[in-house]
Amino acid sequence: MGEPVLSVVFELIGGDFSLAGDASSRVKRILQQAGIPAPVVRRAAIAAYEAEMNVIIHADGGTMRLEIHPDETRLTVADQGPGIADVGQAMQEGYSTAPDYVREMGFGAGMGLPNMRKCADRFDIVSAVGEGTRIEMVFRHNGPA
């Protein structure tokens, strides 16, 4: 894969629910303006939101990088968070370590990572306890609706 046609990095601030969803909304708008097919935009927007919320809920902060290539869109979300001890467990639907105040807002249902994996054509997660988590997702422009 060569140089992206477009590359943007968004800063994510942990614990700041007032800005939650802003980066994902901008990702969605950029993809729409770039003429990416609507079903792909939708999948990428959902995955971006879930990843963004995970950083806001669990980490001090992080970044979301959007890269648009001719054939695919890539989202890379990296945080300086607590890391995930057991990624396999975290990928299970319904498993969550979110605190109560976050769950009361309707977050922390344990669906974030499974939703991301469902939406992306490729999903990679690397995490180290005490260091952080990095998620790479690929959305093929001719991928499934």
Binding site: G21, D22, S25, Y49, M105, G106, F107
Partner: peptide, 12 residues
């Protein structure tokens, strides 16, 4: 809370 708007907007 305000986050429901982002969800609705992202999903259309």
């Amino acid at each position: 809370h305000p986050n429901i708007i982002a969800v609705a907007s992202l999903l259309g």
